[in-house]
Nucleic acid binder design. Structure first.
Lengths: 186, 186
DNA sequence: GCTAATTAATTGCATAATGCAAGCGTATCC
DNA sequence: GGATACGCTTGCATTATGCAATTAATTAGC
């Protein structure tokens, strides 16, 4: 119950009048900063494909995964998209009902259903992904090419690290060291 | 489960990607990469405070905002947290019911309710934020201090850019700048 | 070949989250 | 005072999510 104050607290931009304690600043918390950016863009994209095609978020994600690897099974979609089997099953169902995807029972193993996009599915996908790419372009225009290169490397590392964190769960997080200086280690 | 619209024209197997060049790769899409990292960390944190304190995601977010600026009104929480007024209202309600926060009708304007954490609220918050900081530390350990500095600058820019994108909506996205760049290969 | 165990996928149902209209109380303006 | 705008809450319908139970196909044991 004791407050372990952060010492990294980066200088406040001077907008908050009072700073009660040097506790966690939500807006400075890296995962939250990443979340905000992605959520805003995802919201905008969702505002397009939702009304336009009647797709839910997980249906769109599933569609994108199918588009990337035609013939995937539901199981593979789970792993690739970080979705659970139920979400995928329902998303595929929705896509099929909307006429965007087709299920074909696997040839060798008939438990697997090979899923792929229909013609209209491809049309919808390319419309949505066109917007998605323009959104990304607009985002990326805010930084230099140099920064972007660095960012790519950083995100790759953070992605690995986050996978490790998720795999170990909160019990697996190292016990609080008072010093949390991200010493550069290459 | 009934297919309403089937393409009658051609029994296409849907196997043909329109243009491999223009196909969005979900896993390379910047917003998705940001999302994955943040979602994993948020999931781990949620797995802690959910069972431990009975907090929902928006209740935790709200709590963190209150902790950062004691005495905020619900309206301010909306803006700070990207939550809508209903979510905030319910989150505050939950926090109050759990004994983590208190409402005090504003002195000057009694429409505003000044919200602040109770003692147990502070205790819960510091426990959760402790974990949150350790998670961030673990994440950040994956990159060097130099990269982290660059990342901070980049994220600030991307945050601004994403705010602009959100404000303009999908209709405000510039028309295809490079959406279809025919790489003459054939 | 027949049964049991496994695996992929789906479905039903309870619970939680979300969106929106309407409402209540307060303040402001005329 | 009355009209209007604002902050916030509530009720209700819709949607999403979590989990048990089920179906169907395959594999393993005998």
């Amino acid at each position: 119950m004791q407050l372990i104050s952060t010492q990294k607290s980066k200088m406040d931009d001077g907008q908050s009048p009072i700073d009660p304690d040097a506790t966690l600043q939500l807006e400075a918390w890296l995962p939250y900063r990443l979340f905000r950016i992605s959520a805003r863009v995802a919201d905008v994209l969702n505002a397009f494909y939702g009304p336009r095609f009647g797709l839910s978020r997980s249906a769109w994600r599933t569609m994108a995964i199918i588009a990337n690897r035609p013939g995937v099974s539901a199981k593979e979609i789970c792993q690739a998209g970080g979705l659970d089997q139920f979400a995928v099953s329902r998303a595929v169902k929705q896509l099929v009902e909307l006429g965007f995807a087709q299920r074909q029972t696997g040839r060798s193993d008939r438990r697997y259903a090979a899923i792929e996009l229909s013609e209209t599915g491809w049309a919808a996908f390319s419309e949505i992904s066109g917007l998605a790419e323009r959104l990304e372009t607009e985002l990326v225009h805010a930084v230099s090419q140099e920064e972007l290169d660095v960012l790519n490397g950083i995100l790759a590392k953070l992605d690995d690290a986050s996978a490790g964190i998720l795999a170990r769960g909160w019990r697996g997080v190292r016990e609080a060291p008072e010093a949390q200086e991200p010493k550069s280690e290459a």
